[in-house]
């Protein structure tokens, strides 16, 4: 025990992992901000009646869910400079890969949520004269949010842990910082400290989602 029973050494370790924590939080929040709206758009395109639209989108979802995220991070980091000639910042490549990947998962969750809205809701909107856009934003979406909260919380918890995959292209996120510290000091303890951090973050995520679930409890379907 080098850190857990020595507050001074523990604080030093924290300081050395600080930038890693910031990078992890950056990946986490940026991915959520981009992938949730993108996921909704993909879900709607996937449900489009024209196969010329829905088919390529299905293929996209298949590839994104069917190949390792680690490989996708690699592919985007190395392929985009090759194709476009512009260099991609490691963090940008990571956020891009994560957003594209998570959007595919969110899209399928949202699609399930949208399909679960009874057809009667759409019919009621139609006979009342709602436009399609009004129907979606005022009637469908608010009910979808309630229905998808639980599966979305699963994805968000997975995302917290998946951020560690960014270390494959040497993004200095939490896991990489802990690994470096571990090899520098020849101790596994920094890795466990990192583990505690992921756990703490997911504790917060769990609290946020149980708050949201309670907020949505004012009605039952």
């Amino acid at each position: 025990m080098r850190y857990f029973n020595n507050p001074e050494a523990f604080m030093k370790l924290m300081a050395s992992m600080q930038s890693g924590i910031v990078a992890t939080l950056t990946i986490f929040f940026a991915t959520l901000i981009f992938s949730i709206p993108l996921g909704m758009v993909i879900a709607l395109l996937r449900m489009n009646r024209r196969r010329i639209i829905s088919l390529p989108v299905s293929l996209y979802i298949l590839v994104m869910r069917g190949t390792p995220l680690m490989l996708q991070i690699f592919a985007i980091y190395f392929a985009i400079p090759m194709l476009t000639g512009t260099n991609l910042n490691r963090m940008t490549a990571t956020i891009l890969a994560f957003s594209l990947n998570y959007a595919a998962y969110f899209a399928e969750i949202f699609r399930g949520g949208i399909m679960a809205i009874p057809v009667g809701q759409h019919e009621a909107c139609q006979v009342l004269g709602f436009t399609k856009t009004q129907t979606f934003f005022h009637v469908v979406l608010p009910q979808v949010v309630k229905r998808v909260l639980l599966p979305v919380s699963n994805e968000v918890i997975t995302l917290v842990k998946d951020t560690s995959l960014a270390n494959i292209i040497a993004v200095g996120e939490l896991f990489r910082a802990a690994k470096n510290e571990a090899s520098r000091t020849a101790s596994v303890e920094p890795l466990f400290v990192a583990g505690l951090f992921y756990l703490l973050m997911n504790g917060v995520v769990t609290l946020v989602f149980s708050y949201l679930t309670r907020r949505m409890d004012y009605y039952k379907d």
Partner: peptide, 11 residues
């Protein structure tokens, strides 16, 4: 139109 199963907006 009034439907058999009401189709009120639950939210």
């Amino acid at each position: 139109m009034v439907f058999q199963d009401y189709n009120l907006f639950p939210h």
